[in-house]
Each structure stands twice: as C-alpha cells, then as structure tokens.
Design a binder for these strands. Structure first.
Lengths: 184, 184
DNA sequence: CTCGAAAGATGATGTGCATCATCTTTGCTT
DNA sequence: AAGCAAAGATGATGCACATCATCTTTCGAG
C-alpha cells in the first residue's frame, strides 16, 4: 500500500519517537528494527524507505530524545525564567521518577555507552544535544565561568543517575541523596 | 579432556579477566559467551562448567573490573598516601588514555547502562565496586561531609568521561577540559 | 483519468547467539 | 591400579536479528 506524503512524514515521526523511547529503555543492541517499527504501528518492511540503516535511525532518535527531555528547560530559559527552569530540571533529573523511567529520561545515562560505539552521526547528535542542555543550564547561572560550572553540574547529574540505576537499592539511595544535597 | 583443579581455577580466572575487558569494550549485549571464551583461549563448550549462565559471568567480571581499575587507588590509601593516590586517580580518570580505552578503564561509564538492565547479582557487584572507590576517595579528603563530596566527585568524573566518549571530538574536548579544571 | 512510482506488507536469507547434549580425555578418589 | 566423574571440545537446536526482494495498493503527476 502507498501513503500520502504527509502520512509518510507522520510515519517517520512515529518511528523516531518509538525508537527514542525504546533505545533509552533497552539500549541500541537491545532494540531491534522490527520492535521499533512495531512500536510505531508498522511492520519492519517499510523501514528502509525512511532510513538508510539502523544507525541512521539511532542518530535521529538521539536528537529527538534530547529535544523532548530538555524541552521544559529550554522553554523556561526562552521565557526568561532560567533560574526556576534550571532548578526544576535538576530536581526532575534526580527524582525517583527519572531514575525509574529511563525511556522518558535523559539520553546521557541511558544511551551514552552505546552511542560511544556508534557512528559519527549519532555522536554528533549526542554532542549537540548535550551542549544544548549545558547552554540552557549556563543561562541560569551568574558569576564567572558559568559554562564550565554548567558542564560539571550536568556531568555530576548524569553520573549520579547512571550509578544509581546500576547499583543495589542501598547504594542507589545514597548516591541520589548525596547528589540532591550538592550543588556545584 | 579434563584438567586439574588448579588449572580449572586458572581457567576461570582467565574467563573472568577476558570478560572484564570485553564487556567494557563492547557492552554486555555486544559480548557473546563464545567471544569471551575464545579470548580466554578456550571454546564455548566448557563455559557452563564455570558459570550458571551469562549473567553470572557478568557479575563476576564487573567485580574484577572494579578491583583491577581501582587497585592503584586502594594501594595508595592502604599505604597511607591517600591524597596523592586520589590525585593520581582523578588525573588518570580524566586522561586521554582512559577516554580512549574503556576496556581497561572504569566500569561505570563503560558498563553501567547495561548493568542497570542486568540481574541483582551484577547490580550488587556494581554497587559494591562503586562504594569501594568512593570510600577510598573519601579517605583523601579532609573536613566535613567527606563521603558526600567523594560521591559527587566520582559522579562528576564518570559523567564527564561518559559524555566525552559519546560526543563529537569538539564537545568531548570541552567536557574533559572543564572537568580537569574543576574540583567539587 | 491514467499510469508510473513509491509506502508499506509479506516473506526470505544468512548470520549470530545462549544454551544444551554428547564425547573424549584425564585428574582424583578409593 | 582402576574406574568414576568432571573439564573442555564438538556439534546441535531454536530463536532473533539486519537487510533485501517482491508484491500490493494507492498517491500524485501528466
């Protein structure tokens, strides 16, 4: 069957959105093309009408995941409420919901190790997404070296959630409590 | 063929050491039992004489990887030279060699996302390994809340290396330079 | 209004994987 | 010294995956 041009674009969006979720939940190697197409409501057949290969979808999905996850932060900064938006971002980042639901969370703790083994396109999308987050966080800071402090803060957040997800409950609770208490 | 009891223990050590390397380089799903056995100089056949399943090997390999990577730090602390050992650890952690060679590096940025999807045994080994690193780092600090500051420092290090490995070269250079300049 | 082309379904191909069964050899117990 | 049991090799088994070929249907250009 054939579909209209608008419907094709919508299909592509559905594939990317489905991939963005599944990649964060199951990792790159744990997410098959067929699974992601099924999540998007299609069979695996039409996949290569949209993407050259799995890597191309991964790159697009990483960009989408960053955009989705940091949308509230970006919106707050654009609205001139950077400090409040950044505080909300940090609280959400270290919240139990974020730790328990990587499929809707930050791509850094969920997918970075896989992206490190992926192609240049995915790495470029990842670097751009991380940089955008840091730019927004830096907008909420005052004083010297705002950008540097924003990078360290973001790295600490990502590391804390990463360790918490991979550890036993007691260790996870300790890292998270400590990260919540600390600001850079 | 059969092998002596000592030779069996040595075989097991070789399997664990090979797995510890390959898991950090290729991830859990990217490392097949057959590959790891071949790295250890054997065929896949004898694997289940040593481990109940792949997960059991992953757990053992994570413990071994933490022990190997943090050995210099632990030795320095045990020798009463905690401050110097911790400084060396941080410099090594953020060094180009560590970023470029995950197979010999810290298990946190290399394997945490995979371990988060693994069983309880692997999570317990991971939490214990991370806690041991933090204990050693805390021994090098003075003043209040040493343990908390050590956790935040370690999370920041892991996050920075994680982001650097997954990003384009320009972004990676920026994160690393920033992390090197910053102390918590 | 018609026809080529393309979206997506169905199905095939070849590969790789975890796990198990079996066989051979040989250490270790009696 | 003898035979049992176990380490590791060889070889299935059954499944999952990325990619490609083909077929059907319908869009959109002329």
């Amino acid at each position: 069957m054939r579909v209209s041009r608008a419907a094709k674009a919508e299909s592509r969006d559905r594939i990317v959105a489905a991939a963005a979720r599944r990649l964060r939940a199951a990792g790159v190697e744990g997410s098959s093309v067929g699974d992601m197409m099924a999540d998007a409501g299609m069979t695996h057949g039409g996949f290569y009408r949209h993407f050259a290969n799995k890597d191309a979808l991964v790159a697009a999905a990483i960009a989408a995941a960053f955009a989705e996850f940091s949308e509230p932060l970006a919106a707050g900064v654009a609205a001139g409420e950077a400090p409040a938006a950044a505080a909300d971002f940090v609280a959400r980042y270290l919240g139990d919901g974020h730790v328990a639901h990587p499929e809707l969370g930050c791509p850094v703790p969920a997918t970075a190790a896989d992206i490190a083994r992926s192609g240049d396109a995915a790495r470029a999308a990842f670097g751009a997404g991380a940089t955008a987050v840091v730019d927004a966080l830096a907008a909420a800071l005052t004083g010297p070296r705002r950008r540097e402090r924003a990078w360290r803060q973001f790295a600490m957040l990502a590391g804390a959630v990463l360790i918490a997800r991979a550890s036993d409950p007691a260790t996870a609770a300790e890292v998270l409590a400590t990260a919540r208490r600390g600001s850079l």
